[in-house]
Design a protein around this nucleic acid. Structure first.
Lengths: 120, 120
DNA sequence: ACAGCATTTCAAAAAAAGTTGAAATGGAAA
DNA sequence: TTTCCATTTCAACTTTTTTTGAAATGCTGT
């Protein structure tokens, strides 16, 4: 199909250096990074973990209780959160204690501030 | 497996009203809403659309060019963005012109401010 | 070195999300 | 009212993500 921009929008584009300029300015790297973070946060279990950790650092056994998931399932989700730079782990004796990174914290704060409004 | 909280963490929990309190305070509705938004933003094509729209409202034919997607594919992704309250459409003659909602705009702004750092 | 515990890893199976192209829709112009 | 054009919808298919349970890892105390 042919590519034709409506007049009204064409005019707006002129002021911004044209269509090709808009396309060129897309921050490809940032978008890839954001995609990864979003993928990780697009799952209820992982969000529950994130929100709970905003209140309190936790070991995995607490998270299995909180999320009603098996260890292996929890572990899977924790590794996703970790790879995205949202949480970090430190060992305390036999336990691994997970807590939020500053970046993870900033996300929770954002959504407390800007509550989404989603179609039911 | 039995559920046992390490001493050090147990002490932290006391100050916060205990483990059950942490669990009770989880904002279940907010989490469900955020999950939906995140799911929508966890896909490169849709993020490209979002970022481009932060610069300029657009009709679908422009988006097919920007994303190198067929109309039907574009349409599928647009409907997800719309359901999440990130974009809205208005008709101009034969064209449907899509643009960001304030919520959509707030998301783009957030990620421009807090750049994620993801493991490669 | 061994046993016990908390947690992770693995591979196969199940579930969810994205893609495709053809057909349907709905406004605008003839 | 018919045709045209931009866009959406549908159902079958493909790809990606999650779940499962069994086996591996790696501290810690004995």
């Amino acid at each position: 199909m042919k590519f034709e921009i409506p007049k009204e929008i064409e005019r707006e584009l002129q002021k911004k250096g044209g269509w090709s300029n808009i396309k060129k300015r897309l921050p490809a790297d940032e978008i890839k990074q954001v995609e990864k973070v979003m993928k990780v946060l697009s799952y209820e279990t992982r969000l529950r973990i994130l929100y709970a950790m905003a209140e309190q650092r936790m070991c995995v056994c607490m998270l299995t209780e909180l999320t009603k998931c098996s260890y292996s399932k929890c572990s899977y989700h924790l590794s996703k959160l970790k790879d995205a730079g949202l949480i970090k782990a430190t060992r305390k004796g036999n336990y691994l204690v997970y807590s939020l990174t500053p970046f993870g914290r900033s996300i929770v704060r954002h959504f407390k501030k800007y509550k989404p409004e989603v179609k039911k």
